[in-house]
Design a protein around this nucleic acid. Structure first.
Lengths: 294, 294
DNA sequence: CGTTTTCTGTGCATCCCTGCACAGCGAGAA
DNA sequence: TTCTCGCTGTGCAGGGATGCACAGAAAACG
């Protein structure tokens, strides 16, 4: 049963009883309707209509087709209204992906967004692998740095994460406060283990201190943060995260060149939808009130 | 939501995940598939798929379409198998129409046919108006005489109804037996009221007797038969019907020129179907055993 | 890392579907 | 009856959908 258009044509003929009437409803010439019916009957090997000069009357098979196509048209109409309307309502799933490090920033935003639009089910994905927008894995991605993006992605700047050097009060009590980078000698540092890190502050730190001064290294950012908090040494932490911990003492204040930009990335197809737009405005509005960020 | 073929195309793409795969299944070029998707999305104003070099993945709207079209395809497949199979099975309705006068001949045939094919529901229509085959009102019509038929009707001879003159035993006791048409004078006759009757025996009777000898006239054949049975006079009756009544005495034996042919008429479209063919063979077989018929 | 495969996407030529016009026919009205 | 209207049905011409070929890109594989 190929060629669904012919079924649709036959449905209108069965419903209206005349070829001309069906042609008018379908917006085609009545000759087209006749040819569709002929082709469909030939393919089925059975007559759908009794032909007479006054119109077409459906046979038993034609009435069967009428009933089936009737519900089909209703189903398609409902489908079309759902699809057309879905871009204009804020409902369904909203999939957001980001690096785990900004979870504490994003989570309140998404909770309040879900509160503002109860129809929305939020899924927040943080994983080592980068979720791909072009496979439809996420609607919105929050990415760090300035990596290259695919052409179909629309990129918007969100904010800048500010970083500073911290150590625990216990560390300072024991090893003293270096004051500035000039006093780094003899101090112990926490830094990433990856040689090819793209984080500017880690590159800066590696260039400032001797390799043997890095007494604690890890690949996972969260592990580095834990190490600083446990007093392993002096290390970089995001300002907004360090602010929550009264035990941390700022070793060096944040600098502009250490900042890492956060970008909002969406696929161009989904960027236009009202759901994504609503979340983006909500996110940007929330970002204005973020303290300790650029 | 016009153009159901595009929905079918989108359904295959959503199901298989690639344009090329859908094109192969649909038996069209993959460029056609791309154009169908583009046209459908443009008309809906929403994206159904995320495009990437490795294939198409359905969006939320695309998955919705997939579910709807899935059931649609199943429905259409079932419809096609029903329609294709219906011509090859003896089931459903069988509508037979005839004049009321042969009801006693046809009814046993239809009952035994319904017994042989329990799937069949028989509808037997006898009405003053002639049911039209080209409007699909009946599958098989039993017609009398040799009236003109429409070109799309296929006509087959069934049998010949034999007619004879009868009177009741009471009538003969009172008025005597005319012996032959030479002795008709003074006798009382039952004949049709219609001047333009096409029945040959009625025309013969009108030419043989004086108008005042027709003491009982009616338009309905059944009413004429009742009049003869009640002893109103001498009148024509079908031989097979008079044979059931022992009270009737044959006044004149049947003649060849009085016979009325019965024809089986079917519409050409329905004539080919197995259901109609089965009934026709069944009817002709039964007609062989009809007594008192030519 | 280079090669191969596979899939998408587009310009162009072709073909089939469609629209048009007219004939034919049956039905209903005057 | 005759007239008129509406619907079906078909040959012909045009246009839009289709197929083809090729480019480009990304993933898979050795």
């Amino acid at each position: 049963m190929e060629n669904w258009d012919e079924i649709r044509t036959a449905y209108q003929v069965a419903r209206l009883g005349t070829v001309s009437g069906a042609a008018e409803v379908l917006g085609v010439h009545h000759a087209t309707v006749i040819r569709h019916i002929d082709a469909l009957e030939k393919r089925l090997g059975a007559k759908l209509f009794q032909r007479h000069a006054r119109g077409y009357t459906a046979t038993e098979a034609g009435r069967d087709l009428l009933a089936v196509a009737q519900t089909t048209e209703e189903q398609f109409a409902h489908l079309a209204s759902r699809i057309k309307g879905q871009g204009e309502t804020v409902s369904g799933e909203l999939v957001v992906t980001s690096i785990a490090g900004v979870s504490d920033l994003l989570t309140p935003v998404m909770v309040s967004f879900q509160d503002a639009w109860p129809e929305v089910r939020v899924r927040f994905l943080t994983d080592m692998r980068v979720f791909r927008l072009d496979y439809g894995e996420a609607h919105v991605a929050i990415r760090a740095g300035t990596g290259p993006e695919e052409p179909d992605n629309v990129v918007q700047p969100l904010t800048r994460i500010r970083w500073a050097l911290y150590a625990t009060r216990a560390y300072v009590d024991r090893h003293g406060h270096p004051g500035s980078e000039a006093g780094f000698q003899g101090h112990r540092f926490v830094c990433t283990d990856a040689e090819t890190t793209k984080a500017p502050f880690h590159r800066w730190l590696r260039s400032m201190v001797q390799p043997e001064q890095v007494v604690y290294a890890a690949t996972e950012p969260a592990a580095l943060e834990d190490a600083v908090k446990q007093g392993a040494g002096i290390g970089f932490m995001a300002v907004h995260r360090a602010a929550n911990d009264a035990d941390l003492i700022e070793i060096l204040p944040p600098r502009a060149e250490w900042e890492t930009p956060l970008r909002i990335v969406t696929h161009v197809d989904l960027h236009r939808t009202l759901k994504v737009q609503a979340f983006l405005t909500h996110l940007k509005e929330a970002a204005k009130s973020w303290k300790f960020c650029g």
